[in-house]
């Protein structure tokens, strides 16, 4: 029986594992963390329909059968070429044979501390969208650092994305809709709160996203087109300096809580693995497939495939389609090998 090693146990890796197992292949899934699930495992409710993230995870997990074995806390030491494929050597010395490898190592969140002027990690009431998901999931209520219910909350789009200074010119695609979803959730939790959103463009690229945006406007969320220039803390409150680029006016908005919508970053770990596998990295740092239109899952290196956010920002639906497509390609490859 052919064996596929999948590196990365996010939704991309898990979905591909389930499909490959069903196709009759033996699968070893390597996950570096204590548990699989990747980023989606950390989200509370998902856009666009606000279903629980855990529901999606359960759906994906159900597809796994005994053909899939999962190794968590797996560190990869090297990937060696062998006469019949590859050998993935773990840091504990174990070598795992692979007829094909699927790289599904996903992304990293942009480290908001790098946008120094926004004060993440310095000002008490500046958090990220990922922090807010954790708060939704674990705490169920939003408070400022001193335990008060915030009366004014602002969201900042494009933190670490579309930002040459941060070294990332690409759009992270999902942060606009995440921000709009979260703004609605904040408003639902605290109807009296004033909610602002500072955006460059609102990019609602997928089905039902625009409806969510309209809903946000109907709920009274104030969308201000303008890039935040700096943030300051004043007696516990967060002062935001921003230019309203539609009216051409500089503004100062004081809020109790500021949420930075952090984007996708290619992970250094992926870069290391790409070096071992001799596959290409694009100018944006994400792994390059052989052809952006017609071969999204192939790398040009025989037996090495890609799925999910490892090739750039994606929402869950696209990630899952990409994973299934990768599973099909791997199946084809193994059949002809």
């Amino acid at each position: 029986m052919r064996q596929v090693v999948i590196i990365g146990g996010g939704v991309a890796g898990l979905e591909a594992a389930g499909f490959l197992g069903k196709m009759g292949h033996q699968v070893v899934l390597l996950e570096k963390e204590k548990a699989v699930g990747g980023h989606v495992g950390k989200w509370d409710r998902l856009f666009p329909n606000r279903r629980q993230g855990s529901e999606v995870m359960d759906f994906i997990r159900k597809k796994m059968d005994e053909k899939v074995s999962i190794i968590t806390e797996a560190g990869i030491k090297s990937i060696d070429t062998s006469p019949d494929g590859y050998a993935v050597v773990l840091t504990n010395g174990e070598a795992i044979r692979a007829d094909a490898i699927l790289l599904a190592t996903g992304f990293e969140l942009f480290d908001a501390r790098k946008k120094e002027e926004y004060g993440y990690g310095i000002y008490d009431n500046v958090i990220t969208s990922a922090d807010l998901e954790r708060i939704f999931r674990e705490e169920g209520k939003i408070t400022t650092a001193d335990g008060q219910a915030p009366q004014k909350v602002a969201f900042v789009h494009c933190v670490g994305s579309r930002d040459e200074k941060a070294g990332n010119v690409y759009c992270s695609k999902v942060c606009c809709v995440t921000g709009v979803k979260q703004a609605i959730e904040v408003k639902e939790m605290m109807p009296a709160a004033k909610v602002y959103s500072f955006y460059m463009d609102i990019r609602m690229f997928d089905r039902h996203f625009e409806e969510l945006y309209i809903e946000a406007q109907q709920q009274g969320i104030t969308f201000i087109r303008g890039r935040l220039s700096e943030v300051y803390e004043d007696q516990g409150k967060v002062q935001c300096k921003v230019e309203d680029t539609l009216t051409g006016k500089p503004m100062k908005v004081t809020v109790d809580l500021l949420v930075l919508l952090v984007g996708f970053m290619p992970s250094p770990e992926t870069k290391r693995l790409a070096g071992m596998l001799k596959i290409n990295i694009g100018s944006d740092g994400f792994v390059l497939p052989i052809d952006g239109h017609i071969s999204q899952n192939e790398t040009g290196v025989p037996g090495i495939f890609l799925a999910g956010a490892v090739t750039g920002p994606k929402c869950i639906a696209t990630t899952l389609s990409d994973a299934r497509s990768a599973a099909l390609q791997i199946d084809q490859y193994l059949k002809t090998k």
Binding site: R113, G119, Y120, G121, I122, Y123, D124
Partner: peptide
């Protein structure tokens, strides 16, 4: 204000 945040940048 968290001083550690500034120290991280410094």
């Amino acid at each position: 204000m968290k001083k550690e945040g500034k120290e991280y940048i410094w």
